[in-house]
Design a binder for these strands. Structure first.
Length: 412
RNA sequence: GGCGCAUUCGUCUAGUGGCCUAGGACACCGCCCUCUCACGGCGGCGGCACGGGUUCGAAUCCCGUAUGCGCCUCCA
């Protein structure tokens, strides 16, 4: 996998990454990370560290040291000189250009698309080495594939038209060709290249929004690939076991955020209670919340089946950590039930969810209210919101003192 | 404009000539469950881009058209 260090790792790039990783792990091969930094003018500081950090977060591990294209500048220049000497290339205004054949076709058997052919007369003589001495991507990339012993080049479909050029270069130096596999692009909802206006695009943004790495990996794997028509939820091991390039579809996919949200919810719910609490605490820490971890741990089971993203947690649980603002208009005639609830809870023993539920149901029944009519004003008074975790569990966690104070404030 | 790639429900896809009056999942709609939200259960809506061929038979094979996308940089 060969990203260029121009910023955060793009989610489309991750999908290509993932296919490479799954293929390598499935076959017990090696998965290499190479940074294509020949265009020094576009390089962004820290980008390499961010890319590596994103991959670690996703748990997509690579083999060996990360290599840098720029480190092979001298080797590339030597090859270019040799190509000139052999008549495969020539000098042009200080640069070195490769002489493309102008008859026949250049073709390969793409592992995803089958046979692809380009007429050679449509291939232009491309620059191998710029006039400032730096090799270009289309020269350095195939040469590194050769030097690194790359057997399979798995990349996005926008590289299809680069492939015949690279094939001709590799052929000219007399090396063996790798297998090429061009996987489909990932687009936004309008069929255009996935960009900011479609939503999150950087791995860091997905992390901040509270997506689980496993869910993201599972979702991405299904963009352009399916093991069959039925299976959607798959562990990493199952993904590795079942992945094959033959089953990658050639047509572009659109990134469906709604489906990702659903899948992330599936993964959140499947987490053991401890692991979910741990993920929550970690995420809150990363986002700068200073909420008590013990209380977060207790609140976690109340919300686990409600969340599709970790970032939804604060909206549900804020009332446990901070004071609430109650809009009197929302109480809307609920003062009697709030007052009665306060009386019922005062002195109630034990102060646990089951006992609280019995007491409050009694209050509601006595006032002749339907459960939903009766509980809603209490919920708003206690949590400050019309939407909350289970009322009785919430009150237990909040504690008697705070609950009574909030009920008093709302009833007055 | 040239070259290339692609085209099954709104979306992700299954389908490799008869098993397809096209299956699954997300989304959407309805009902049920229910203290809100969510989860869960049940049901519904909805698709082979178009036109020719090949064949006893085509979503599946061939040709053309249309549309979308990519590349055509001394970017990667």
């Amino acid at each position: 996998m060969a990203p260029s260090p121009t910023g955060f790792l793009h989610i489309g790039g991750v999908r290509t990454f993932l296919f490479n990783w799954l293929f390598a792990r499935h076959h017990g091969g090696e998965f290499r990370l190479r940074i294509e930094n020949t265009d020094t003018s576009r390089e962004v500081a820290e980008a390499v560290e961010q890319i590596e950090e994103s991959l670690r977060w996703l748990r997509l591990d690579w083999d060996g040291e990360t290599t840098f294209q720029l480190d092979r500048m001298d080797d590339c220049r030597r090859v270019a000189d040799q190509l000139v000497a052999d008549g495969h290339a020539y000098e042009d205004e200080g640069a070195i250009r490769f002489r493309m054949p102008d008859e026949g076709v250049t073709a390969w058997d793409d592992a995803v698309r089958g046979r692809v052919e380009f007429p050679n007369d449509s291939l232009e003589d491309l620059v191998l080495v710029r006039s400032d001495g730096r090799p270009t991507y289309n020269f350095a990339s195939p040469m590194e594939d050769v030097w690194d012993g790359i057997t399979h080049v798995i990349r996005a479909e926008d590289h299809i038209s680069n492939t015949p050029k690279q094939i001709n270069i590799i052929s000219a130096v007399g090396a063996a060709l790798p297998v090429y596999a061009h996987v489909p692009n990932v687009n936004g909802a309008d069929g255009k290249k996935l960009s900011k206006r479609h939503g999150a695009t950087g791995v860091d943004e997905f992390r901040r929004a509270g997506y689980l790495p496993d869910a993201l990996v599972n979702f991405l794997a299904l963009l352009g690939w399916a093991p069959d028509g039925e299976t959607t939820i798959m562990s990493r091991d199952e993904l590795i076991e079942r992945f094959s390039l033959e089953r990658v579809t050639p047509s572009p996919a659109q990134f469906d955020y709604a489906k990702l949200d659903w899948m992330n919810g599936v993964y959140i719910r499947a987490l053991p209670e401890d692991a979910f609490a741990h993920a929550l605490i970690l995420w809150l820490g990363e986002q700068g919340y200073e909420w008590d971890a013990v209380l977060v741990r207790k609140a976690a089971p109340l919300v686990q089946e409600k969340l599709s993203r970790l970032e939804e947690f604060p909206a549900y649980a804020r009332f446990l950590f901070e004071d609430v603002q109650v809009d009197p208009a929302e109480i809307d005639g609920g003062a009697p039930v709030i007052t009665a609830a306060k009386a019922a809870l005062d002195g109630l023993e034990p102060f646990d969810a089951a006992t609280i539920e019995t007491a409050l149901r009694g209050v509601v029944e006595e006032l002749g209210l339907k459960p939903r009519q009766g509980f809603q004003p209490i919920r708003i008074a206690v949590t400050g919101s019309k939407i909350s975790p289970g009322l009785f569990e919430s009150i237990e966690l909040l504690g008697r003192e705070t609950t009574l104070a909030r009920l008093s404030a709302a009833a007055s």
